[in-house]
């Protein structure tokens, strides 16, 4: 990226750029979650998010809380792994950084697999994007979150690839990994909000 200009506030410009981008992304997911919460009330044809009886007929709810809490746990652990990778990078312990970076990537991919499984399961149960408002807003929200996680995984892989080629810590590597860590943690806290509002909140 660009050279390190002297910054008036002492914050590195690249870190400041990441934080302001995350502020913008806050509004992005805020609007997505608003759409979901607005349509949460009136989903008027099956399949439904939770078990409900509609004029005498029982409909099995799609949302699988234990499975999703497992994937939430996976994403949480990937955040912990990320923090340790940043710790390793900043104390130039190359082995520790690479180890935890690989486990973060692994946990991230594991979380994505959970998502892919859940999407296929829902599609199989007949919930298409155009089936009802639950389908549309759910797929849009979790889809965009999944895309953010995917981009995060690509960034982490390219950082990992960068360290292998030079088998030593470049001057900025620690900084790049810390900034990537900020993005990764943000994606994790967005999932924390989604998990609570979508899966745990009663309908």
């Amino acid at each position: 990226m660009s050279e390190q200009a002297h910054s008036v506030t002492g914050i590195d410009s690249r870190k400041l750029l990441m934080w302001i981008f995350l502020a913008s992304d806050c509004l992005f997911f805020g609007a997505l979650i608003s759409t979901y919460m607005i349509f949460k009330g009136n989903i008027n044809n099956p399949p439904y998010p939770t078990d409900r009886i509609v004029n005498g007929e029982f409909f099995h709810g799609l949302l699988n809380i234990p499975l999703t809490s497992a994937s939430t746990f996976v994403l949480l652990m990937s955040s912990v792994a990320m923090v340790l990778a940043v710790y390793g990078a900043q104390n130039n312990n190359l082995k520790m950084m690479k180890g935890w970076l690989i486990s973060t990537i692994g946990l991230g991919i594991f979380f994505l697999l959970f998502q892919v499984y859940e999407f296929r399961h829902f599609l199989h149960e007949g919930l298409g994007i155009s089936t009802n408002q639950f389908g549309a807003s759910f797929y849009l929200m979790t889809g965009f979150h999944g895309v953010h996680v995917g981009i995060g995984v690509i960034i982490l892989i390219s950082l990992l690839f960068g360290t292998f080629r030079r088998n030593s810590l470049g001057p900025d590597t620690g900084f790049h990994i810390e900034t990537a860590g900020l993005y990764w943690h943000f994606v994790d806290i967005v999932w924390i909000v989604i998990f609570t509002l979508v899966y745990l909140m009663p309908y």
Partner: peptide
């Protein structure tokens, strides 16, 4: 997560102001 994993507690005050303003705005909307 924001305070410790994202290090906001130890960073320059401006970063936490930026993030809280954006988050509060998103919540209000």
């Amino acid at each position: 997560v924001v305070a410790y994993f994202m290090h906001l507690r130890f960073e320059h005050r401006l970063l936490s102001q930026i993030f809280t303003f954006a988050f509060v705005l998103a919540l209000c909307i």
